[in-house]
């Protein structure tokens, strides 16, 4: 426990030093705020884009607040996941390459607490960033588009947060396996994308897949939203995060236990 605290503080310090605690939440906040603002001004933007034939009118039904929030979550599914993967991908592999982890494991240090500190700091960065961004989106949506039912918003947010946790855990696992940063980004982004696409194509076989979590959270936002298999998917996702953690611990142990 002592070691975990020490490592955790070190991870947090390092994330602060590399400005991650500044730019990741900021980018998430901008992503969240942008969607309601863009939606609100879509008619004006189209009008001033100008290459429309005279007399042509486009009527866009003003979307409801819940729809806008669902679109915001869609933004996080693409750019948000990308930012997340890019910001945590070198957390394990970077220390391996620079020799820091060799130095750490020269001493009798618990592999579990080392990895747990990485996991905990990654999860707190993701949680804080998403909470800030989603909160911003919610605030703007209520201000300029329309009220949304609070319960649905919170539920959708929590399920979406689970999906981001899953993506982060996956990235850290890949980071413990591979060396080159572009490779880590490619593999973990590809796996996350495949999972979420698979639940779009084969909904029958992926009811409990973590990849269906984004859809589940979008479903919560629909009027009278009832999401299928939500609890199962959430539990399986948590189990996956734990398995990824255990696998990464095992991998780190294999690499350094021989000395």
């Amino acid at each position: 426990m002592m070691q975990f605290k020490l490592f955790f503080r070190k991870e947090m310090l390092e994330m602060g030093r590399s400005y991650k605690w500044l730019w990741v939440p900021l980018v998430f906040l901008m992503l969240g705020v942008m969607q309601p603002v863009m939606t609100r001004f879509m008619p004006e933007i189209l009008k001033s884009a100008g290459n429309m034939p005279k007399g042509m009118t486009i009527t866009i039904a003003p979307p409801s607040g819940a729809e806008v929030l669902a679109q915001t979550l869609g933004q996080y599914s693409s750019i948000g996941i990308l930012i997340l993967v890019l910001s945590v991908m070198t957390m394990i592999s970077g220390e391996r390459q620079s020799g820091v982890s060799q130095m750490i494991f020269a001493k009798p240090v618990s592999y579990v607490s080392y990895a747990a500190a990485k996991w905990a700091s990654m999860l707190s960065l993701v949680t804080a960033s998403f909470a800030l961004g989603y909160g911003g989106a919610w605030y703007y949506t209520v201000q300029i588009i329309g009220a949304v039912e609070a319960g649905a918003v919170v539920k959708a947010g929590l399920f979406y947060l689970l999906w981001l946790w899953f993506a982060g855990a996956l990235t850290l696992l890949v980071s413990s396996l591979l060396d080159p940063a572009p490779g880590i980004a490619f593999v973990s982004l590809g796996a996350a994308l495949l999972l979420s696409m698979a639940s779009g194509w084969l909904p029958r076989y992926t009811v409990y897949s973590p990849g269906s979590l984004p859809q589940i959270s979008a479903q919560w936002l629909e009027p009278a939203g009832e999401a299928k298999g939500a609890v199962g998917a959430a539990l399986l996702c948590l189990a996956c995060i734990f398995i990824f953690f255990a696998a990464a611990v095992y991998r780190i142990k294999l690499r350094y236990s021989k000395g």
Binding site: W23, L26, M30, V37, R40, F41, E44, S48, G50
Partner: peptide, 27 residues
Amino acid sequence: MDAMNTGIPWSLIAPLIGLQLILAVIG
């Protein structure tokens, strides 16, 4: 000048621009 005529309320867009500036300054 079109943007002025359509009456975009800058009070809504200003926070976005501000955030972007902060990000650039931190960078």
